[in-house]
Structures are given as C-alpha cells and as structure tokens.
Nucleic acid binder design. Structure first.
Lengths: 136, 136
DNA sequence: TGATGGTTTTATACTTCCATTAATCCAGGA
DNA sequence: TCCTGGATTAATGGAAGTATAAAACCATCA
C-alpha cells in the first residue's frame, strides 16, 4: 500500500486513527491530567500519575504527539506536555457522559425488574443476577 | 488478573475500552450512518455502505453491541440497528471538529510562513516543505 | 417439511499493538 | 570534558485484534 496522502484519505479512516490513539488506559490518564490541569504538565508528574515505566510513557506520549493531540516543550532538562486543542477535553467529557448515561439506563432496568410482581417459584434476586449475566 | 467487576474498574480503563470500540474504520462508518439517519438501519444497507463481507460486518456490529453503542432489533428476516444513545453522535461530531481544527491550525502555520520576509539564500517553497517534514 | 435468503457465530492464519529491555540523546554541573 | 539525571528511541517477544472462510442459526415461503 503506497500510503495515501493524509488529505485524500476518507474522514472515517482518519477518525478511526484518532480513536485508536485514545484506545489505551495510560494515554487516557495522560489526557485527563492535561485536560484537568489546563496548563503544562511535566513528564515526571505524568510518570507518577500513570505509574508506568518512563520508556513506556514516552512511547504513549509519542503516539499522542504524532496524532497532534498534545504538544511538548522542553525547559532545561525537563519536558512538559499540554493539550494542543481544548476539544480533546470535550471529547473526554462526552465519552464520560455516554458511559454515565449507560449506567443510568442499566440502573433503570434493574429498578424496572424490582418493581415486577413476584412470580411463583422465582425470587427477585435470581432474576437480577440473570439480567446481569445477560448484559455481559 | 481476576477480571475486576465492571463497576469497580477505574473510569479511564472503561473509557479506553470505549475508544477501542471506535478504533476501526468500518465501525466508524456504521456509526456515522446510524447517526445521520437517526432511525433504524438495516444490515443490508450497512453492508452496502461499508462494502465489507457480511461476516466481517457482523463481527463489527457485535463489538458495538457489546459496548452498548448500538441496539439491534429483528423484524421478520431482516435485522436493523440504531444508536443506543444520541451522545454517540455527539462523540463523532466532536471528533470531526477536532480534526478540522487541526487542519485549520496547519493551514494557519502555512499562511504564517508565506508571510515571512524573504531570507537571502532560501526560497519560501523549500521552507514549506521543511515544516511539513518536521510535523511528521 | 425442506429449501432459501439473510444474519450471526466459530475457527484459524495474519497483522498490529504493547511491555520490556537495552541503547541513545540531550542539557546541566563537577 | 566527562558524568549524571531525565527523556526518548530502537529492538524484540508476546498478547490482542482483524480478515477470511466454513458452519450454524433463524424466519419465511413453497
């Protein structure tokens, strides 16, 4: 494959690549810290927050950098990172909202089951367990 | 690892898993169609839009279903899908906005270089090429 | 009931991603 | 200059994700 130039590549591919960059817990942690702080964050701090090895973190940071999600700047011997674009924080917010909405929906279902009239020969607890298993 | 229950799992892991589900062009295509139409969309149509094999598409749909992103319903012999939650569409919107913002920023940089005063011994075109290489 | 069209599941080879280790780079201080 | 601490890059073995093909499912219709 001759590596189609980025501008002619269909948007859904570029989007998929973007999400691929977000598809790792350590990278999410990094972005969340950057989004929360709003300012530059040192690699040392990210290292402490994520708890992973420096080489590992560097590789994740490289992924985020290549995607244009973050920007690095070096002052003396220390390097620090920041979000290139506030929309990244928004992306994380919407993702969280979606997950919370899902939880709320599930809670609602559980409530609905609780309010069912009791059936002969089946107790509510086992019914709940059944739905929980079914959701997996 | 004893497979921590979903509710006790840290949010950044769940988020990463969510983005993992979005990290494939075919799945993005599917979600975009569902988001655009707003209503139920038949598998046949998705099959036509994405152009992939039915078995392949089914696997992608299974990924989206397990993540709670889409919901399926069967009427007769045909199955159709819809977004479980409108926030998914919002997620795609923000992603697109971010990518467009990135493009705009790059355009801006190019403009800035164009407006630089000419330097002796260097022509603007090569400068542009240099910045483009540096960005990779 | 058997046959058919549409969808999903299973199995397997293949590709990509990730963690780990070692090596390299880069700036500052002795 | 050499050394040291902080960060990145390179190399590699193993895990996870994906495409392909084959089998199973499920509802409809003859």
């Amino acid at each position: 494959m001759p590596a189609r130039s980025r501008s002619t590549e269909p948007l859904y591919r570029i989007k998929a690549d973007l999400f691929k960059c977000l598809a790792h817990p350590a990278r999410i942690q990094v972005l969340e810290v950057l989004a929360a702080d709003g300012t530059d964050v040192s690699v040392a701090r990210l290292l402490h927050v994520t708890g992973c090895m420096s080489s590992q973190l560097s590789q994740h940071l490289a992924v985020l950098r290549r995607a244009g999600l973050v920007t690095s700047s070096r002052s003396g011997n220390a390097v620090s990172y920041r979000l290139t674009e506030p929309l990244v924080a928004e992306l994380l917010n919407v993702a969280r909202a979606f997950l919370l909405a899902g939880l709320a929906r599930d809670e609602g279902q559980i409530e609905a089951v609780r309010e069912l009239p009791p059936l002969p020969g089946a107790n509510p607890a086992s019914l709940l367990d059944a739905t929980r298993r079914a959701r997996t």
